[in-house]
Design a protein around this nucleic acid. Structure first.
Length: 589
DNA sequence: TACATACAC
DNA sequence: CATGGTGTATGTA
């Protein structure tokens, strides 16, 4: 049913039927009936679509076809094949971080999440059908030996900051879609890149399993230079091999270089897609996963050919429901979309028509709202279903307190509209909202208005409560000055790296380690590693992270001013998302 | 404006 | 035992 799809990578050749059966057997009655309800809603819509096509008159069909033809001409005129867009996606991100920091997890099936929900699974676990979005307790049935690791979001956030700094050197306006996904416009960088770059590559071997990347077992290491040392973590001997690697000037080479640097810095691999726009780059990033990249030539025919056989579900924005709708029109691949485009006006809204046609042509989505500011802020929690109103009020108060705190941290003064979200024990979701004449800002206001809404739902058995504030009012921001100052300060202190003096960094000058004073090769990744070792030596056993960026290096993050030269009007990157705040997971009464 | 849906990660 | 949390966009009334 709709519980399991093998859309994502890593599941070749497993027994789908068996997995589906295990999932069904372990699905609760209430969830199962909710799923059925959802499915029948989709079926209804599908019937409606078929019906509309069936009973459309000749004139209507003709009109629809003309309308799509005109739209296609208009859209085709906007095609831009001049850009180098890159989407970089970390491989099994949360799981990879946990595996990096605990070698025992590298060889067993493992997932990050709770018994209620998994965020990621490693590739070994995926072979059992264990995947992101699946409840942990069902995963355990599919794979009894599965190890569940609770997520450590502050750590994932920190690591994400580390590698986004690398991307920032290539595109000052890099868009982080989430902790593990980056959109990079390389056009300008590639155009200006005239020289190859050489990096020292560090890889590890010996008895110490801690550091990554490892030298492959089958590689001939006869002629590699190395250095032995005692690992500060496991006390075993670690052998660090090093050699030079070169990266040329084309976009593929530059992307290889970025991926190389990410792995050197964090010990994590990522995959990349390269194409004429971000919509295509995102699809491509999935093609050679894990630890690979895929380029789609900036050529109309090549793009259309690539899309012809591509299942529609691989396209960003087409989910379970749209897939079903389109399938009812015999559309399974993007190629089919192009063949059937004349039917769109009979079944879909104008926006949906355009969006599907853009997809079919390999064009990016409509650039959306130019206001980069966030539009809403919310907190929601799931708990054991209850209709006890006092209990719901207690939860509600806590949620309001958390929301108020988040609002303050976000530099938001208040908002016009307050929305209460409820999920019933049946899994049905309701929202109730109101817009008072005055802006809602204090904890008291938030609580008062949302409680008003909650009171009207007395008696319902509820499993989730949420409160959202929208139509936000922001603090007057004078941030740009701060950032500039920050950058100027950093510049005077001799920054570790910047595009202008990139060559100096690659060439081998040294720089004293701020911790131990020893001369260290002045290359960002190497320096970070060294500093990290030093810090580990002198500090705790506490921090489980192997790689931790130095404080100095961190300051360099804020430098978009320098890089953002005038850029052509272009497709909007997906908006950067706020990092979720984590608190201990509470549940039960 | 209010509410529901769909989607991404 | 047991199916998440945050945010955006869009359709419809």
């Amino acid at each position: 049913m709709l519980t399991f799809n093998d859309n994502k990578a890593g599941m070749g050749g497993l027994d789908k039927e068996k997995i589906t059966k295990v999932i069904e057997e372990n699905t609760s009655a209430s969830y199962s009936s909710f799923s059925k309800k959802q499915q029948s809603r989709i079926d209804e819509k599908v019937a409606e679509i078929k019906n509309r096509i069936e009973k459309a008159t000749r004139e209507e069909k003709q009109k629809a076809e003309n309308s799509m033809k005109n739209l296609e001409i208009k859209l085709e005129a906007s095609r831009d094949l001049s850009r180098d867009c890159v989407c970089i996606d970390m491989d099994a991100y949360f799981a990879a971080v946990e595996m990096r920091d605990d070698p025992k997890l590298r060889t067993i099936p493992m997932a990050v999440g709770s018994s209620a929900m998994l965020s990621t699974s490693n590739y070994l676990a995926r072979r059992f059908g264990v995947r992101a979005g699946m409840p942990g307790f069902i995963s355990k049935k599919l794979c009894p030996e599965l190890t569940l690791v609770p997520g450590n979001y502050p750590k994932y956030t920190k690591v994400s900051r580390q590698f986004s700094e690398i991307f920032m050197e290539y595109d000052g306006d890099v868009g982080m879609m989430s902790l593990d996904e980056a959109y990079i416009d390389l056009t300008e960088y590639v155009a200006n890149r005239t020289e190859k770059r050489i990096f020292t590559r560090h890889r590890y071997g010996g008895d110490c399993p801690c550091w990554l990347p490892r030298v492959p077992e089958d590689e001939d290491i006869e002629n590699l230079q190395f250095e032995d040392s005692e690992c500060t973590k496991c006390s075993k001997n670690r052998r660090a091999y090093f050699d030079d690697v070169e990266f040329g000037v084309g976009r593929e080479e530059v992307v290889r270089e970025m991926r190389f640097r990410v792995e050197q810095l964090t010990g994590l691999t990522c995959s990349a897609g390269i194409a004429a726009n971000f919509m295509l780059a995102k699809i491509c990033s999935d093609f050679n996963k894990p630890n690979g990249q895929f380029v789609l030539e900036n050529d109309r025919n090549v793009i259309l050919e690539f899309l012809e056989k591509l299942p529609i579900r691989k396209v960003g924005g087409i989910g379970r429901v749209s897939e079903a709708h389109l399938q009812s029109m015999d559309i399974r691949t993007v190629g089919d979309m192009l063949l059937q485009k004349a039917l769109f006006p009979l079944c879909f809204s104008p926006l949906a028509q355009e969006s599907f046609l853009r997809t079919a042509l390999g064009l990016p989505g409509r650039p959306s709202s130019s206001d980069p500011r966030r539009k809403s802020i919310s907190v929601e929690r799931t708990f054991s279903p209850t209709s006890d109103f006092q209990m719901l009020c207690d939860v509600h108060l806590e949620i309001c307190q958390m929301l108020e705190e988040d609002i303050r941290k976000a530099g938001v003064i208040g908002g016009k509209t307050i929305t209460l979200k409820l999920k019933l024990s049946s899994f049905d979701v309701l929202t109730r909202s109101l817009t008072p004449s005055d802006t809602v800002s204090s904890l008291e206001d938030i609580q008062k208005y949302s409680l008003e809404l909650l009171e009207k739902e007395k008696g319902k058995e509820i499993r989730l409560l949420g409160v959202r504030l929208s139509q936000l009012v922001f603090e007057e921001e004078k941030k740009s000055k701060t950032i500039t100052d920050f950058w100027n300060d950093a510049k005077q202190q001799k920054p570790l790296s910047s595009p202008e003096d990139a060559d100096e960094i690659i060439m081998m000058d040294t720089r004293p380690c701020p911790i131990c004073g020893a001369d260290v090769e002045n290359q960002l990744e190497i320096l970070n590693r060294h500093v990290d070792e030093c810090i580990q030596k002198m500090t705790d056993e506490e921090s489980p992270e192997l790689i931790c960026i130095s404080v100095e290096t961190k300051k360099k993050v804020e430098k978009p001013v320098v890089f953002s030269k005038k850029r052509k009007i272009q497709e909007k990157k997906p908006a950067a998302k706020k990092v979720a705040t984590i608190d201990s997971f509470w549940k039960k009464e």
